[in-house]
Design a protein around this nucleic acid. Structure first.
Length: 895
RNA sequence: GGGCGACUAGCUCAGUUGGUCAGAGCGUCUCCUUUACACGGAGAAGGUCCUCGGUUCGAGCCCGAGGUCGCCCACCA
């Protein structure tokens, strides 16, 4: 940062000081300033031996708005990590971009265009022009939303999957994969979408339960059969595909049927003679145990057909219309054909039965249209070989997946990986760099960076046609970690930032994206794309999985505009464990908002205090812990602060982000605000203690702001900028974004313990004030070491016990102290009520004592348990003995 | 059919290597018109950690069986 001139922070940020922080005013200005200042761009020159933190934004679809899943990933986890690593001094690259989103984007734009014009009236070029127009409209939207979330992305390295140079890289990748034998073209059965008019991959095929008619159809024997031969009856939900049947299959071990294997039957409606074959894919328990085999229109049947060399008949075309091969059904749409087939079968007496069946049908993920499996010539990627090193990378621990159990799911999928249909019959996307010779059929895939071929290298024909299809969107996004850095050129960025550090995304795209990036990264770079994968869960709003149809989509942008990004980011992550689905409720947002507000008002209090008690020459990041003039409260909070720094750091470092925020909130609210801030008011009244208190406030605030910044960037930096104007830091950091993450200093455990005892005493007093009606002015006599003053402070400040000299008698432990105070105060007020309580407590105390005794008497415990545990247990025993004795004594006194 | 996960206070969930781990937030109840914040403060009540076995000196945490719910993968016509 040193070389660059940092512009002055906006006045709106520096002057914000109202009772309520105004996110809608401050956040955009502050973000713009961060960006202008170049905080998000890693230093231009790599420092020798620098540590880098590199994370690619899981590129959102260009046509979409942010949803809660994005907000959780980008604003909740990724930016938290990026900011934390940046504060740890690592050269941090969090690279933004967007995905052209092939089919979805095309659908969206088609829908828009349909309002004015007919897509079918447009040429491919005209349509793509329209697509680009829309891209330029959508892109700024999604980028603005990423800024609203506060993501510290390096906008100077922004990428889009359809950028011309990205297209070039995808083309090079394709040609290399082809030359290395990973790509092939084949007639195979694919998922076909009648709505989108394209194929799609297995991963994009969803299954839904549906109830259909199951029709039982008799296939007559081709030859006369002896008396008593059973009829061949198959059960089908798709009678219209009967016309494409090329066999009937039974299980080879099925006692009912196996003797008929090799015999012929006639396919109804077309009278085709087909064989009965034996195949293990048949479930003997289903229907009659006989399966009609339609290799042209069913995945299972296609595979059976492959095994038995059956012919493939395509009876349905890409529009869903029955082809001439469908004979009597030709020309009808598939739905009409089904009705017609049923009708004809019934007439011929071949329909023996119909019954409803609930089964799973495949639908297209994008548009929910029922799958129409077709056999088409397609480009495929052979996955088995590519998967091997990717499996190894995770197994060996080179790549770590968090949470760990997701690794099992990864292995499961990778070890059973199937080839990937990579072509899509749409216009929007990366063209397939393959040409087909119209004369000899040769496939021409030119050398990388070669111009488009014009002549067939085999037969010299100049009649070449480029493949009209485009590549699956995931084909290009799988390359994201290296193409964005300049691959295949050996750029400085590629050398410096590959392999990356972290890939954060939802577990739902582990296969779609993460696995493929690992495979392609290893293939193209010879090295893994990232060292760790953090997978977050689904966000539900109000109890249900979010979906548009349910109308319960809570827009993150709406929440940000209403409550601020800080609140949303905190609410999404607080208390959620790695990989778990979570619930975003009004209550959580409320609590997050209140915490952010708390932080803001703590800051205001400290800043006001510093106006009244200026601390010239002091640094906000310097602990006053050594100052002998510090009071007990100051010593306590300073020690607790170091504990918080230590704990919070450990939690982030081990990916316990949900706990990180809970711990932070506990410390800030319960300890810093509720206890210390109140006590500081006492300290500040004492001229001798005031400077120490002011410094303590400034220092603890400084620590808290740093600790909270990764999740709550806006409020924390606003306060830091204001604080550091009053009391600078020793390193003059211009913003929290580039400030140093705190290192935990020494604690004073003994003092913490004593102070905790005092707090117990105070709590006891407060309790009594309510329970027994102790009024201000009640004299309570007590002393505890040298800390009497603190007790009085606390009691004064909150319980209004103006003259509470607390003393205690024989006992040593805090519990005894508390009891002593409680009992003596109560004795003056309501002895009867107190006696009942004491009796109950005595019983409980005796119970605990017995347990301690039994544990220590148990054979093995003293020998086998670690010494520290035994010692701990012994002191617990002593405490319990003391407590029982004490309660007993007090009780006797009350009687 | 295979695989994975969840089951902890009324609700939503934390609990990292077995020994202050029985927690947080919300909700509930009782108090407090305190000059950083009422988006506030002081307190309280509330759980056989799904069940049954096992390992261990010791289990919410490890192992086995079962129950309920959810998710993923797969060629159920």
């Amino acid at each position: 940062m040193a070389t660059k001139t940092i512009p002055t922070p906006p006045a709106s940020v520096l002057d914000e000081n109202g009772k309520n922080f105004r996110p809608s005013v401050v956040e955009p200005e502050l973000y713009a300033w961060w960006e202008r200042s170049g905080f998000f761009t890693p230093p231009a020159e790599a420092k020798p031996g620098e540590k880098t933190f590199v994370m690619m934004l899981p590129l959102p679809n260009v046509t979409g708005d942010l949803h809660m899943g994005h907000a959780l990933g980008f604003g909740g986890y990724e930016d938290l990590m990026a900011r934390w690593h940046r504060m740890n001094g690592e050269s941090t690259l969090y690279l933004p971009g967007s995905d052209h989103a092939g089919i979805i984007a095309q659908l969206v734009v088609e829908r828009e265009l349909a309002k004015e014009t007919d897509r079918r009236g447009l040429t491919r070029e005209q349509f793509l022009d329209e697509m680009w127009k829309w891209m330029r409209f959508y892109q700024p939207r999604i980028y603005k939303q990423l800024r609203q979330l506060g993501c510290s992305l390096d906008w100077s390295r922004l990428r889009f999957t359809m950028d011309p140079d990205m297209q070039r890289r995808v083309r090079i990748h394709f040609t290399r994969l082809y030359k290395h034998g990973h790509l092939y073209r084949a007639d195979r059965i694919v998922h076909w979408c009648l709505t989108c008019q394209t194929t799609y991959s297995d991963l994009e095929a969803l299954h839904v339960e549906r109830t259909d008619q199951l029709s039982y159809v008799r296939y007559p024997w081709a030859e006369p059969m002896p008396e008593g031969t059973p009829d061949v009856i198959v059960a089908t939900t798709r009678p219209e595909t009967i016309v494409a049947d090329t066999a009937v299959a039974v299980h080879p071990d099925d006692e009912r049927w196996k003797r008929f294997i090799g015999k012929d039957v006639l396919v109804p409606l077309v009278e085709r003679r087909v064989k009965i074959i034996g195949d293990e894919a048949v479930d003997p328990a289903f229907g009659t145990g006989a399966l009609k085999v339609t290799p042209g229109h069913d995945q299972t049947d296609f595979e059976i057909g492959q095994r038995h060399g059956l012919p493939i008949i395509s009876a349905i075309d890409t529009k869903g219309t029955m082809t001439p091969a469908a004979g009597i059904l030709a020309g009808a749409h598939r739905d009409a054909a089904r009705a017609k087939a049923i009708e004809l079968l019934r007439e011929k007496g071949l329909l023996t039965k119909q019954e409803p069946i609930t089964h799973a049908v495949g639908i297209h993920d994008r548009c929910k249209t029922v799958d129409e499996p077709l056999v088409l010539k397609q480009w495929w990627m052979a996955m088995k070989k590519l998967a091997q090193p990717a499996i190894e990378a995770v197994r060996s621990g080179k790549i770590e997946i968090i949470p760990k159990y997701q690794e099992k799911i990864y292995f499961e999928w990778m070890e059973n990986i199937r080839d990937w249909a990579i072509a899509r019959q749409i216009w929007w996307g990366h063209s397939i760099p393959a040409w087909y010779c119209q004369d000899c059929g040769e496939i021409v895939v030119p050398d990388e960076d070669a111009p488009d071929p014009t002549r067939c290298p085999k037969c010299k024909s100049d009649d070449l046609k480029q493949d009209p299809d485009v590549l699956d969107t995931w084909f290009s996004s799988a390359l994201w970690p290296h193409t964005t850095l300049g691959w295949p050129e050996k750029t400085k960025d590629l050398a410096r930032f590959y392999p990356g550090t972290m890939l954060e995304t939802g577990y739902d795209i582990l296969f779609f994206w993460v696995a493929r990036m690992i495979m392609m990264g290893i293939e193209n770079m010879g090295d893994i794309p990232f060292r760790a994968v953090y997978l977050h869960g689904l966000v539900r709003v109000g109890g249900e999985k979010m979906s548009k149809s349910k109308g319960n989509v809570e827009s993150p942008v709406g929440v940000i505009e209403e409550r601020g990004a800080d609140t949303l980011r905190f609410a999404l992550v607080n208390g959620v464990s790695a990989g778990a689905d979570s619930q975003l409720s009004e209550g959580k947002l409320q609590n997050a908002g209140e915490f952010v507000n708390k932080l803001w008002n703590i800051g205001r209090y400290v800043l006001r205090t510093l106006e009244a008690h200026p601390q010239a020459g002091w640094h906000a990041d310097q602990s006053p812990a050594g100052d002998p003039a510090l009071g007990p409260a100051e010593r306590w909070i300073l020690s607790r602060t170091e504990a918080a720094v230590d704990e919070v750091t450990r939690l982030i470092d081990t990916y316990h982000f949900g706990e990180y925020l809970t711990t932070l909130q506990q410390f800030v609210w319960s300890e810093f605000a509720d206890v210390y801030l109140e006590l500081s008011k006492q300290s500040l009244r004492d001229p001798k203690r005031a400077p120490g208190a002011a410094r303590t406030l400034a220092y603890v605030l400084d620590r808290v702001l740093r600790l909270a910044h990764p999740s709550i960037p806006f409020v924390t930096d606003t306060l830091a900028l204001q604080l550091w104007r009053a009391i600078p830091t020793s390193d003059g950091a211009p913003s929290l974004v580039v400030a140093k993450w705190p290192v935990a200093g020494a604690r004073d455990l003994e003092h913490e313990e004593r102070f905790a005892a005092l707090a117990d005493v105070v709590r006891a007093i407060r309790n009594l004030r309510q329970a027994a009606g102790v009024r201000p002015g009640t004299r309570v006599k007590a002393t505890l070491g040298g800390e009497t003053a603190s007790i009085r402070d606390l009691a004064d400040a909150i319980a209004h016990l103006t003259q509470s000299d607390v003393s205690f008698g024989s006992g040593t432990g805090p519990a005894t102290v508390v009891r002593a105070v409680e009992v003596r105060v109560a004795a003056e007020h309501d002895a009867g009520e107190q006696r009942a309580r004491l009796e109950k407590e005595l019983a409980e105390a005796r119970d605990l004592l017995t347990r301690s005794r039994e544990l220590l008497a148990r054979p093995g415990f003293v020998d086998k348990a670690p010494a520290s545990v035994v010692a701990n247990e012994k002191s617990k025993l002593a405490e319990r003995e003391e407590r029982v004795r004490f309660l007993d004594e007090e009780l006797r006194r009350l009687r």
